[in-house]
Design a protein around this nucleic acid. Structure first.
Lengths: 227, 227
DNA sequence: CGGTATCCCCGTCGATACTG
DNA sequence: CAGTATCGACGGGGATACCG
């Protein structure tokens, strides 16, 4: 993207921030992603080549730093600088506006894999039973290769598996993609979806009752949509 | 720009907002521009074709409305909807971040015409003498065709002229482009630039003394730069 | 003033394959 | 895991000219 040739602070900020994929990459970094592959999982549409290029641009702009660079450490990582941290409220502002006013989602936008990936960072593990909890999410209307996902929760950590883990499933959640996505977005309350059967939960009664408390929704779910 | 295919509110908002020129067009609308040519003067780099296309996109997205559309009125105008008004704090957030953290401006970015255009909306006409006040701005290092501009202030209204108006000049301000731009951006105080002669003001003593109070700076001038 | 029409270039991005 | 190399196509957008 060539520059705007204006010294307005909005124009200067835009040069970097409005490049394609940039805000989504920053969203992942704000959400705590540090490794290349984790950032990529949160922005699956981008090619690795381009992701690398964007990360280099962010580093050059002083928004991202690579703490381990040059240390020979085997764990490359990306981190937000102070300038990057200050983008948090900016992104929150854009997202908040999007929650209120952006277009409706199309079926195209409903990527089940991404839904699970973004959910996995917003599970209240503190309320889960001791030890390991395995939740299987089954999307009844998804193509075979992204029908089922497994969330393995242990010691406050949540891992997303695309194949059945070797552990027993404690809770099976079945739903169409859109139904769960709309709950996630705060457009419908979970309990009403459970009551009318659009989302079903199977497992031990204790687990089933606790499930709604585990599921933290999108950070913007509480902002009321205007359109 | 093709869509991101994510139902994240940030992604949905980005689809429209991160299109090239979009934020600058919205900046002009937020600043009060209503007519096509006024928007264009604030974003001189864009082609009319593309500007029209972007405005249509904004209208389609519900951010801009055309109150006179279909009325046969001869004064076409663009206006922000409620959704558009709610972008104000979002743009202010991005610009505020830019003021603190964006790259330094290059000589390329120092368009004198744009500086005058953006200044003309931030003149404190209430403090000016009754009747008409004409300020000539002369950029000593600018190419001939954008060396001089005239601000004609009358009845609370400020007009930018590229050619000498038929009225006498009350105040002549001479400066290099960068010097005035840096004052505008809040990087240096005006009075020190006046004292050291990097910016010179000629005219009746009363006018000369009043001038600094007329010149409101960039809305972001008071935000301290961090880099 | 407020746009259109047309042409064409070049940079961006996507696809695929490969590597330390 | 964390990228790199190479290639090709597309389309956004820049330039110029024109119109009601």
């Amino acid at each position: 993207m060539s520059a705007y040739r204006q010294f307005c602070p909005l124009a200067l900020a835009s040069e970097t921030l409005t490049q394609r994929w940039m805000l989504l990459i920053l969203r992942e970094l704000c959400a705590g992603a540090r490794r290349f592959s984790d950032i990529h999982r949160g922005v699956p549409g981008i090619r690795p080549t381009l992701l690398k290029k964007r990360l280099d641009t962010l580093e050059f702009a002083g928004i991202v730093a690579r703490p381990t660079r040059g240390t020979g450490s085997s764990k490359p990582a990306y981190a937000l600088t102070t300038a990057g941290e200050e983008l948090r409220p900016v992104l929150a502002g854009i997202a908040g506006w999007g929650q209120r006013w952006a277009r409706d989602v199309r079926d195209d936008d409903l990527d089940p894999g991404w839904l699970v990936w973004t959910m996995h960072r917003r599970l209240n593990t503190a309320l889960m039973p001791q030890g390991r909890t395995v939740i299987q999410i089954c999307f009844s209307d998804a193509p075979a290769h992204q029908r089922s996902f497994w969330l393995v929760c242990a010691e406050g950590d949540v891992e997303v598996c695309l194949k059945p883990p070797r552990f027993d499933v404690d809770l099976l959640v079945t739903s169409r993609v859109r139904a769960l996505a709309e709950v996630w977005r705060g457009l419908r309350p979970l309990d009403s979806e459970l009551r009318c059967g659009r989302i079903r939960v199977e497992g031990a009664p204790k687990m089933r009752r606790a499930f709604p408390s585990w599921l933290l929704l999108s950070p913007y779910a509480s902002i009321e949509r205007q359109v």
